[in-house]
Amino acid sequence: MNVPQVLPRAIARPLRPRIPRIGSTVFKHLVLILVGAVVAYPFYFMVTSSLKEFFEATSTPPTLFPTSLHFENYVDAWSRQPWGRFFANTFFIAGASVAGEIVTAVLAAYAFAQMNFRGKNVLFALFLATYMMPGEATLIPNFVMMSKAPPGVNPFFPIPRLNLYDTYGAQILPFLASAFSVFLLRQQFLAIPKELRDAAVIDGAGHLRFLWSVVLPISVPALVTVAILSFYASWNSFQWPFIVTSSEAVRPVQVGLNAFRAEAGSQYHLLMAAASFVVAPIILLYLVGQRFLVQGVARTGIRG
């Protein structure tokens, strides 16, 4: 998919609101508020329900606002599972994935953007192909690779068995490189003026030094975008960790929340409290890093 060409780069520019006006301002606000209410209602319902007591949370019809506030629901929900551990796991897994992905992507993107070598086009096409490969096809082979070789099966051939089922490794290693991040950074690095490189060569700077002291400092926004997108993906991922882990020691929050659905049963007030604290960090990150996330999505068209 030729994403970068299709997509607008305009989002960073101020929007030019001189497009032909339609309808009255009041009408437009009405439309936007209505849509906003529908979009935001589940969040409102989540937070208010998390503060209700059990009988109110399971009353028909639902109340709009809790008759009394029960902040202890959060304590209760938190104490039912080792959430602290789940959060620590998720932060560790996401942090390690992001760090690794940035390193591999910066190096590869730099090579594609600033270096000449044999087989560049072929390799780039191969990277593109991995980007288009849907995860469904590789889900099962990856699972088999993470498994332990059954007795009598060669652990190296034809399929290498890494014996990483139920470890951090299984949740981190497959995400240490992303063709997508390579594209994104390559676009950024291509835009670096040739004069800068020439000046660096005259100074006797090698690639690594040029990359470190010139390219990276001027690419911080792009790096932050890659980091946020990758962190976001890692934080929210569910299917793979669900399949490849079993113990609480390495369980991430999304899998924990899924397990808590069974535990809470019809105690929706506790379930909503848990959902609230699971989404809180990522929403906080969104509010703080909105600019980067929005830019990243607009520039790259990642849909999650």
Binding site: F143, S147, Y165, D166, I243
Partner: peptide, 9 residues
């Protein structure tokens, strides 16, 4: 899954 992965409790 654990049977397949060879990592049973």
């Amino acid at each position: 899954g654990a049977i397949q992965a060879g990592a049973l409790p």
